[in-house]
Amino acid sequence: MTHHPPHAIEVHHLKKRYGAYTAVRDISFTVAVGEVFCLLGPNGAGKTTTTEILEGYRDRTAGDVHVLGFDPARGERRMRERMGIVLQECGVQDDLTVAEVFEMYGRYYPRRLSATDVIRLVELDAKTTDRVRSLSGGQRRRLDVGLALIGDPDVIFLDEPTTGFDPSARRHSWSTFRTLCDLGKTVLLTTHFMDEAEALADRIAVVAAGEIVAEGTPATLGGRDRATARITATLPAHLEPSALPEFASAQVALHGSELEIRSSDLPGVLHRLTSWAINAGISLDDLDVHRPSLEDIYLELTSEITDPRVQIPAMSAHAPHHGKSTSK
């Protein structure tokens, strides 16, 4: 079973149905060893279902899935010894201290990291002797990350790890996640935050209505690198359009003194425009270049999906307030 696969995670035509509802229609992707791969999509897109099938929590309806060469549906202990999971909602034994929790969970793994190292890595060293109950939401999330790390896993699953965080806490936790990436771990991240995907992932797959609608690096996703750029500038008043230089393969429009050029050859157009302006003694003070942001691409990709089932409330009711919500 444990042949060395070229990929840490392989998913081929995965399908998952809950009764009449299809959570995952047809999803295929591979994640290379050491790669940070992100499933980006709105709530109910099928990200968590896919992740939970890979983690061994859910059975699949159809398709082929391998994690480190194992079939997660078989729930083998040797597979779980090599994976770390950060679930969306996960309580820990509230009445134990941080150090005790790391000691206890560490014993489950035959190969494990030093608890002291991991506690320092997730910046809980000041809380070692505190009960888990007393931790804040952000500290609990760091505890989750630490517990996912304690068994020195080869693959780590991060399922919407910053949902419910304020922006500064999110950015702070990214640095913790980056450390995982720097340790050479393979990471499968799911999120509905574009900036999170862009900041952390080597490769992103946009998921909508149970299917991957686009895949690429943060820079190339959805043809973002090849997409038409828009160049705007204000020209001196009463400039004749004929005074402008020729732009090959570009649309040029002059609205009064507002110049707008659309082109997929950004460097060429910029070069012609700026050299012309310098020769003509025109300052082009408010010269601006617009490229579609990852958010533009994402919204465009996911808005094409008009399937009403995306809105199923049960699938979108994911932990509105994290950390404290689960323990009573």
Partner: peptide, 10 residues
Amino acid sequence: AGILKRIKGT
């Protein structure tokens, strides 16, 4: 609290 679910993943 999800502790049982967490255990299942270890």
